[in-house]
Design a protein around this nucleic acid. Structure first.
Lengths: 228, 228
DNA sequence: CGCCTGTTTGACGACAGTCAAATTAGGTGG
DNA sequence: CCACCTAATTTGACTGTCGTCAAACAGGCG
């Protein structure tokens, strides 16, 4: 999509490589590439612009006073982030893997019905995903949470194709800590749960710690407690 | 707003009292009144229409196969519900107290930019509230969760007025079970926590079990872990 | 008054958190 | 290519918060 030729990766803490010149971008949005783990914005930053994920994935998280962190949302291509109600961002946003984001000014929404319509669609589906996540956090056990996440990632990486084949490697682009912070667990619990899923042959971990293969989709679904 | 004269309350399980004649409503939406605990829609229902809360409050919840329930969202006046991505609702919606809802056809969104713009705004703020809730469910203790809810209800009932006065009765329109299902706890834990907050004089329960008075706003804030 | 529903309190157990140590993976420089 | 260093992961032992099961209590209504 629109071939971004990255000339130089900016190593400065915040703005990553801007791929498209700002001059031509005001209407289309500004395309920017973010390396893995690079912050897109931080809580408290001025929220003049918001973002649409074009490729990769980002996570939104908040940190409580005493350091507890909760990843509130993982956003995949098509998703929106940074559309704050107030003047500043309330969460931090960071790339989970090399990602391309398109940013718009909040005021662009006023001007373009087409843009607003598209954004509105996305927000609806994100709200629905958040409902899923709330169920996961509020009512599921550690096992169920981990299985739910694996199924979700699987759905995103290979869209509804080999439904019951089950096989399919998932490149889980998160550290154990990130998984824990997303699922409201500790990293130790995530480890133990993954070890157990391996032993019970529901999943099989690959060479890299961050890759998994679903061995038994049916049992995994049951273990996740019915939804993906 | 716009004086609805309820002529007769329909006692049938689903459609409640329709306040405005459907004929004149296609553009403005259809105004309907729901008694306390009356379902607005159920998961699986056809999602042709969506709703905007005009007064009162509704809750959205999901039920897992084994009966565990999670209240995923509480929606106050101004909020939107029922805007499903698919053809059917994925959650159940039920009035927490006598409420007036205005419903629109999903296709109305196509036709009116003004409506879509307004809905989009609401969705943004609801998404932001969901983020708060995810932090609560993922990282807060039982105490912190209960305090967070009380503060949230307080903010809604008496909007930013007597900031540090602290006093102000909250009519908490939920049963212990509903609170528990919203906060990802059991009703026993909610009871014990409320009893404890009473003993410690952070809140004081009124005559009715569902009314509270904030005694010590500052300590309550601290106990909620910093955000409302 | 009796019934039903919702709330409170208690005793006990389990799931997940905490603290700590061992092991592995990944990156850098010799 | 290997040694070394750091960060990430895994595993273990123990603890605590919250869930489960059960019983008592309170309130509303016919």
């Amino acid at each position: 999509m629109r071939g971004y030729t990255v000339t130089a990766i900016d190593r400065s803490p915040f703005p990553a490589a801007v791929v498209q010149s700002a001059a031509s971008a005001s209407a289309l949005g500004l395309v920017t590439k973010f390396d893995k783990h690079r912050p897109v914005y931080m809580a408290g930053d001025d929220a003049e612009r918001f973002f649409e994920v074009e490729s990769g994935a980002v996570m939104l998280y908040r940190i409580l006073d005493d350091g507890r962190r909760q990843v509130v949302e993982i956003i995949f291509p098509g998703g929106i982030c940074g559309l704050a109600v107030g003047p500043v961002h309330e969460s931090c946003c960071q790339a989970l893997m090399p990602s391309v984001l398109r940013s718009y000014k909040k005021t662009d929404l006023m001007r373009s019905d087409a843009l607003r319509s598209r954004i509105s669609q996305k927000l609806q589906s994100q709200l629905s995903s958040m409902h899923d996540h709330v169920v996961t956090l509020g009512r599921k056990t550690a096992q169920e949470r981990v299985c739910t996440l694996i199924l979700k990632l699987r759905d995103i990486e290979n869209p509804p194709a080999n439904e019951d084949g089950g096989e399919g490697t998932i490149a889980l682009p998160m550290t154990r800590t990130e998984i824990a912070d997303y699922l409201g667990l500790t990293l130790e619990t995530v480890c133990r749960t993954l070890t157990d899923l391996n032993r019970r042959k529901l999943v099989e971990s690959g060479q890299k710690k961050s890759e998994f293969r679903v061995k038994d989709l049916l049992r995994l679904r049951r273990a996740a407690c019915c939804d993906a």
